[in-house]
Amino acid sequence: MTLSARAGIVSILILVLFLGAWHLATSGSSSVQQMDPEYAKLMGITATQGKSAMPGPLQVGATLWKHLTNPFYDNGPNDKGLGIQLAYSIGRVAIGYLLAVLVAIPLGFLIGMSQLMSRALDPFIQVLKPISPLAWMPLALYTIKDSNYSAIFVIFICSVWPMLINTAFGVATVRKEWLNVARTLEVGPLKRAFTVILPAAAPTILTGMRISIGIAWLVIVAAEMLVGGTGIGYFVWNEWNNLSITNVINAILVIGIVGMVLDQLLARAAKLVTYPE
């Protein structure tokens, strides 16, 4: 048996164990006081049957199936299907992320190629980088005056730093020999940037992009919980509002899967530009 097949079996075992433990932990019901039937009618099942507020895996599975079979329903501005909410979130992430790419990569090149700019911009980057993206939210709402653009701005500001730093690092650490070869062949600066530096720095740049997309996806959920309206973050908030843990778990699953897909896409892209020396 190959290693990956064995790993797969272990993975499945862990999953089964986890689901089994989850099922056992939530299926029990604690003791309840006797209630007047009229009173009991006004109460929820947590109170009347002592059922755990935590749903079991079967319940979560059933709701997940319901969401998957009808992902695009639209019952007005505050109640849309999971598919529509995901589309909103992915759209916001895509716009904010692409804007960040447009800014970070050229700026990273500049910093990487110029010692002066690198030194001059360094203090700003060091200060701005560790700020939690959500801390920007009130400021963004106040200045941009539009919650949707604010969410996009927050995605932009959080995904710009890893790309910027990685691009600068990648560009600055291109091997001297290659640059010297280019110089002896009298390659112009623009041609040098595109044919020598860019391919050499591409793997590092893509690593930065991969880190960024992960952060962007982390942040969008929190940002949407804050501003509300649409998106998977809003969905989580809305279901939390209803104390529906079942739906929250569903959303967590979906968020995880989409995050994984985004990450894998960039990992593939990184492979495409990496050459063995």
Partner: peptide, 20 residues
């Protein structure tokens, strides 16, 4: 009219001030 659900009072305040 579209009635839009909002996450908190501060957000309602900001969104109304922003004319959303």
């Amino acid at each position: 009219v579209d009635v839009i659900k909002t996450a908190g009072w501060a957000v309602v305040r900001d969104k109304t001030i922003n004319k959303e």
